[in-house]
């Protein structure tokens, strides 16, 4: 159906574009999968230290950030509905909310990391060296995995800003919104990774 509306002067293959982002998502899942396995093995090797260390993470902050990401996933998903309904205003509002929520997530992360660093916990800190191998591994993985996840949030925000501008300029519209859908898929991936980071680091002690 969409074939008949496609313009003659442009080369577009939405299906291939979507396949591309999915292949990228799969490599990302395998990448983080490897890190989760590393976490599981070290947890298995140092159960007591991981138990004590995990209790130092703030469940409330973790829960708030989970809720923020889940809501932002919903708003960007809703944007693919509103664009197809030719509702540009709602689309821009929904993308805007997603961006604000992403920023709030990062602000929370900033305070969370600052608190840890203030307590003398950062990769390679003297305190961790004193506490021993298990704590060093737990907090090493904590900083690396949540940091890598935060990097994905920042990249996602840049992508969503590009999408916002393109919707504004009508370069993304009801019959040409694959970039919005791909951006959404990437954003859901970021959410998906957090769904596992949250119980593993904050909940299970």
């Amino acid at each position: 159906m969409s074939e008949s509306i496609a313009h003659h002067d442009e080369h577009r293959d939405d299906e291939a574009s979507k396949l591309g982002i999915w292949l990228f998502i799969f490599t990302e899942l395998l990448f983080f999968g490897g890190l989760f396995i590393t976490y599981a093995v070290y947890r298995h090797a140092h159960p007591q230290a991981f138990h004590m260390a995990a209790q130092q993470l703030d469940v409330a902050v973790g829960t708030i950030n989970t809720v923020i990401l889940l809501i932002s996933s919903m708003t960007i998903a809703m944007a693919t509905t509103s664009i197809q309904k030719k509702d540009k205003r709602t689309t821009l509002i929904l993308i805007g909310i997603t961006l604000v929520l992403a920023l709030v997530f990062l602000v929370n992360k900033y305070f969370e990391w600052s608190a840890k660093i203030d307590h003398g916990i950062w990769p390679g800190s003297p305190l961790l060296e004193e506490l021993g191998k298990g704590d060093t591994l737990f907090f090493g993985l904590y900083f690396f995995m949540t940091g890598l996840h935060a990097l994905h949030i920042i990249i996602g925000m840049i992508l969503i800003i590009v999408i916002f501008v393109r919707v504004r300029k009508d370069k993304i519209s009801f019959d040409n919104f694959q970039l919005l859908e791909n951006g959404g898929l990437y954003w859901h991936l970021v959410d998906l990774i957090w769904i596992f980071l949250f119980p593993l680091f904050y909940l299970i002690t």
Binding site: M1, S2, E3, D14, E15, V59, T63, T66, V67, L70, I71, S73, M74, A77, M78, T80, T81, Q84, K85, P199, L203
Partner: peptide, 27 residues
């Protein structure tokens, strides 16, 4: 196959609600 399925807002809202319930359960 190339036609897009437009998912209603309601579906997304209900799914979010379900995800939040599952999150609070795990907490």
């Amino acid at each position: 196959d190339t036609t897009h399925h437009i998912v209603p807002y309601r579906t997304y809202a209900l799914i979010l609600l379900l995800l939040l319930v599952l999150t609070s359960t795990s907490v």
